[in-house]
Nucleic acid binder design. Structure first.
Lengths: 250, 250
DNA sequence: GAGTGGTCTAGACCACATG
DNA sequence: ATGTGGTCTAGACCACTCT
């Protein structure tokens, strides 16, 4: 019915959430056949295109599988939820693992940019916000991180003493919400510094993640370097197969 | 024009490839405004919905950015091509890094399943194909891997001596092409075995990747365990921001 | 106000799955 | 033969950007 869009969300999004709720909360064991697209279209009073968009979201999230000529079904196994491709928050990631998440800010200062900041497109001498933190799971240090944000992206009246615990929230409030990122992963031995911060033996393998976050316009907004204690929790990612040369669409 | 589809590809896919070719091969520097959707629709004789689907593919691949109310533009920076989320082939990954890629099959046998195969949904006693390989870059070992595929998914006349170098190609030829995967990453010290295979000092940090590949129906088709020498090349991934709770669609 | 992308509709034909 | 998802069309209104 409603065409352009009420103030709230997309029609397809609301329908997707509705269907997801029906699948999870209610019952519907894996393998259950869902109503046909035509049926849903009629029942919810939306076009079939909208139904398809809603179901597509569930398929991409791994809740539903579609079989051409047959129907749509509740997926057998839900894919892992918290992966590098789906969340930008370690807080939720740690809590999901069943641990008490904590964070300590060791340092937060404005300083001159160095050459590691080149990916942030800062000019020499430009200031960056440098934040040094340790995340804990059940009070055990699990991630030591150094984040850098170009000062020009931030408000000038920023209170370093009462820094927003989420740098993503900080960026969002400044109109530079993180939209996507590229991360590089490597296994490295812990150094004197990282071993002390994470309370591990020196030389112990750490998962090192170097990540650059971009806003919607493709402007690099943050450089994060993180050292993870691998025993603490696993980093998960989801891959998709590709079409040769040009990338897939669906 | 053509409605249902000739034998070949999707209309939107062909249009996407066409546009991509125009962007890359021809000229069009970053920031260039693309024709409007209506314009493209008219020029190629397809509906605007199809144009949107085509451009959507380019946006997802990072070639194009769309600005509501303004237009579509050639993206500033192409995102990294070879990442865990975009390719399932290490061969191309190594070659892209500018090295000569090689591979040695150490072992390929059918054996009884063990409890590590539980993610593959094999019953106790069922056979699995176990392949042990080493990948090299410029003749230096860089990845040691152990892959396992349920035997029931494969042809029975499989020639283990002349195994297809690509297990993905093998799976595809058996009607179980890998469609998506979940991978877990960890930093681990090299063991006696992995240190020998990769010719590194024992205890040296390795990037350990445990991956389960699924076909389009969600059937797990392969379990891969890989140990990467981190100096060799970096593993890159691309992340996307998420909508709280229910996953994004677009 | 004109133009553009974002969303939605109603209806159509096709290819595949199932009985 | 029938039903289902997969693709496509033509046209509409909306929200936003730009001038």
């Amino acid at each position: 019915m409603a065409r352009g869009m009420p103030g709230e969300t997309l029609l397809a999004d609301r329908l997707r959430d509705q269907l997801l709720e029906d699948i999870t909360n209610s019952q519907l064991p894996p393998g259950t056949k869902l109503p046909t697209e035509g049926e849903l279209s009629k029942r919810f009073g939306v076009s079939r295109a909208t139904v398809r968009e809603a179901v597509r979201g569930l398929v991409e999230a791994g809740y539903v599988t579609r079989r051409r000529g047959s129907g749509s079904y509740v997926a057998e196994r839900r894919r892992m939820p918290h992966g590098l491709d789906s969340t930008l928050s370690y807080l939720a990631m740690i809590e999901n693992a069943g641990a008490k998440a904590g964070m300590r800010v060791l340092d937060a200062v404005f300083e001159e940019s160095t050459n590691i900041d080149s990916v942030l497109h800062v000019r020499p001498g430009e200031k960056v916000l440098a934040v040094e933190r340790v995340r804990t799971a059940d009070d055990q240090p699990v991630i030591y991180s150094r984040d850098r944000i170009p000062a020009r992206l931030l408000r000038h009246d920023l209170d370093l003493a009462n820094l927003d615990p989420s740098l993503f929230a900080l960026l969002r409030s400044c109109g530079h919400a993180a939209d996507h990122a590229t991360a590089t992963l490597r296994a490295v031995p812990s150094t004197i510094c990282t071993a002390k911060m994470l309370r591990v033996r020196r030389g112990k393998p750490l998962l090192y993640i170097e990540e650059v976050d971009y806003d919607r316009d493709g402007t690099p907004v943050m450089l994060s370097r993180e050292w993870h204690v691998s025993e603490a929790f696993d980093v998960r990612i989801n891959r998709r197969a590709q079409v040769p040369q040009a990338p897939r669409m669906r």
